[in-house]
């Protein structure tokens, strides 16, 4: 596995992480090394094996449809970077 700087830039964009040229290069080198470790997986025959997404095969528990009325806005928004009129403020969202 060998990553190009463009590959890293695409991943960084998807992950919303800004990387400068030096960081991009460092990440590229390290990802190359990490994937040389990971690529060992390709040697295993997994035909017909069900993927294991959970550590235990349990049934999803369900919650009764009951409302707990608790307005935590003030408490939660005390930690927000920017709020106004009860809204979280962000740079304009373009649709």
């Amino acid at each position: 596995m060998s990553f190009s700087s463009d590959d890293i830039a695409r991943l960084a964009r998807l992950a919303r992480i800004r990387l400068d040229a030096v960081e991009t290069n460092d990440v590229r080198e390290k990802l190359d090394a990490i994937f040389s470790l990971i690529d060992a997986l390709q040697a295993i025959d997994t035909a017909g094996v069900a993927p294991m997404a959970h550590a235990q095969d349990v049934m999803l528990p369900l919650r009764d449809d009951i409302v707990t009325r608790e307005d935590c806005r003030a408490r939660f928004q005390a930690q927000a970077p920017e709020v106004a009129d009860g809204l979280y403020i962000v740079p304009r969202v373009v649709e």
């Binding site: 009129d85 403020i89 304009r92 969202v93």
Partner: peptide, 9 residues
């Protein structure tokens, strides 16, 4: 606040 949007969750 300038050119911003508000988020209501």
């Amino acid at each position: 606040l300038g050119d911003v949007s508000g988020i209501d969750l």
